[in-house]
């Protein structure tokens, strides 16, 4: 136990913010940055893919479905390798590990979010879209003002749990030397060499505290939303996706 406190004291800053301000940002800060940016950018992509998957236009449906199935079937690490290879080719210039990781997370999580949003949309009673069209709203207006707000509200717990998955997925940045939390811990271990268990236990502990708190928040929100929905007159009860089903890692 004393070892653990010593490591935290000596290497705490390295774990939390990397070498900043004497060097680049790293550690937990990068993990959080990647996760937040990743899920934020993945969100519009997810909504777009979801809409494509419920659209009657086959030229929208099939590519979107293909993307979703590929991301569900491929390990994240292979997606990282593909992006690592393709992104510089696409952009015509070298790309940092951070950008590679970010792009990967956006595409990967975009696919999983698409399924969550799609489930949310499909769980709303049909009458909602019908009523919106009946008062003269176009399809896209109805989507934007009536369907999506409700669907997304119901899906907040599931999306929160996808955020937790994203945090866990950033750990794969270690494999392509992105200076996030796992990489930082590994660096510390390579320096210390004598206390590997303590270092990795601390690493696991940090992720655990972060993810556990967020998961508890998601569960709390799920209960609140279920209670709200139970009191509503119209429509069938909304199936809030069980948290366990939504995680990808």
């Amino acid at each position: 136990m004393g070892d653990i406190l010593a490591i935290l004291r000596d290497f705490g800053p390295l774990l939390l913010i990397g070498q900043y301000p004497n060097g680049p940002l790293g550690g937990l800060a990068i993990t959080l940055l990647l996760s937040v940016l990743g899920i934020a950018l993945a969100f519009p992509l997810g909504v777009a893919l979801a809409l494509a998957r419920i659209s009657p236009f086959k030229w929208l449906y099939w590519p979107a479905t293909a993307v979703v199935y590929v991301m569900r079937g491929l390990p994240l690490i292979m997606v990282i390798f593909w992006v690592y290879f393709f992104l510089p080719v696409l952009l015509g210039r070298p790309v940092s590990g951070f950008t590679t990781m970010l792009a990967t997370l956006v595409v990967y999580q975009g696919a999983y979010l698409a399924e969550i949003v799609r489930a949310g949309i499909e769980s709303l009673p049909k009458g909602q879209m019908e009523a919106a069209r009946a008062v003269g709203l176009s399809y896209m207006q109805a989507m934007r003002k009536v369907i999506l707000p409700q669907a997304l509200y119901n899906m907040v717990p599931s999306m929160l749990s996808q955020f937790v998955s994203t945090i866990k997925e950033t750990s794969l940045g270690y494999v392509i030397s992105v200076n996030e939390l796992t990489f930082a811990a590994n660096q510390i271990n390579s320096t210390l060499l004598s206390k590997p268990f303590q270092v990795f236990a601390i690493l696991a502990g940090i992720y655990f505290i972060l993810c556990f708190c967020l998961t508890q928040l998601a569960r709390h929100l799920e209960r609140r939303i279920s209670r709200r929905r139970a009191g509503q007159a119209a429509g069938a009860p909304v199936p809030v996706l069980p948290i366990a089903l939504a995680t990808t890692e």
């Binding site: 750990s171 796992t182 590997p196 303590q198 236990a201």
Partner: peptide, 23 residues
Amino acid sequence: VEYHQNVPMLVQILLWYFGIATL
């Protein structure tokens, strides 16, 4: 259940191989 669902899979592997192995 909480531990295994909230710690990344990669980190668990590293903990086992580099950490627990040494114990």
